[in-house]
Design a protein around this nucleic acid. Structure first.
Lengths: 179, 179
DNA sequence: ACCTACATGTAACCCGTTACATGATTTG
DNA sequence: CAAATCATGTAACGGGTTACATGTAGGT
């Protein structure tokens, strides 16, 4: 079995009550580097979880702002979360359009390869900078810190590899233009 | 825009004609570490590509075996592939159920964290062994070799991190059991 | 006897994203 | 005056997976 948005929601709510809107922010801030979710999946997930008795909500009215629905984990929800996390198979998978591009580098126009590499390098460096900020936070549990350090280790390896690649690859994948 | 199965098929066919069945094998052998595709998406993709005039096929009858449809890239197909590869945005994203598990390590039963880490370590080591074999092949174009080395760099970083984690984390995420 | 490899294909399903509708308030 | 932030929700769409149907041959 794999992790879905509903499990992510349960997980986030296990750390404290929140609205759907806040959950999205939380996902972006905290585990953007290994999962994601949009409103279109979060709101339905919360409804579904409530139908199943895993969360409840109260409405918080606000002046000059839309009312918020604050969701709270129930005892059943907490139990379900623990069970799901335990049963999930410990998988990981990369989906890299960048590597597809590189794989067929010989079909790209001159300069495109170098552009792709430096683009990816910039993105990786940004990711590192971001993770370093997160790592500095004092409120992280050991498991959370683990995910950040894992991300840092992986991204630093990517960065180093891409930097050395920038030097090695002159243009169009090492001048190996066939056809 | 992102890479879809049809682009993967065009790419594989740019290296030589093949049947749908062979394409699947190729995907598994050659870029399993950054993309994937199942029959349920490959066959429809090929039909669609043929409708669009990007590939053609001939039927190869076999004795005692089902007939094969051997697909070939057309000139239009080759052009489209080059164009798509050029236009794709150079993205990359990880989807890690392992890290979700780690993030909520404090909710897991004793021993589960250690099991997850060593399971992931074994998978990573297998991946490295596999990539090392691929790297040894002489028929790889520079771009293809790049993807293999990238995979090796990333996975070795993961391996090293997980090994040191195995030592550091005694059980249940560093003895941080709350609740 | 059963599983695996060979080989193609389709339909049901799943789960997610994008885009929209609604609407006040703050910031550039 | 436009855009972003706050806040929720839904419908259309998309793109994939799983599972099934079909059938032979060879290995265990």
């Amino acid at each position: 079995m794999t992790i879905h948005v509903s499990t992510l929601c349960l997980g986030a709510l296990s750390l404290g009550e929140a609205s759907g809107y806040e959950l999205k922010k939380f996902f972006e801030e905290t585990f953007a580097h290994f999962h994601s979710a949009s409103f279109g999946s979060i709101y339905p997930a919360l409804s579904h979880l409530e139908r199943d008795g895993l969360v409840t909500h109260r409405v918080e009215e606000q002046t000059h702002r839309p009312a918020r629905k604050i969701y709270t984990l129930t005892a059943n929800g907490r139990q379900r979360l623990a069970q799901t996390l335990d049963e999930v198979e410990t998988g990981e998978q990369l989906r890299s359009d960048f590597l597809v591009q590189m794989f067929f580098a010989h079909l790209l126009p001159a300069g495109r390869v170098a552009a792709a590499v430096s683009g990816r390098l910039a993105a990786t460096e940004a990711q590192i900078a971001y993770l370093e900020q997160v790592e500095a936070r004092a409120d992280l549990l050991p498991g959370m810190r683990f995910t950040v350090r894992y991300g840092l280790a992986v991204n630093r390896a990517k960065r180093d590899f891409l930097r050395s690649a920038e030097a090695h690859v002159p243009d169009t994948a090492g001048g190996c233009t066939d056809e």
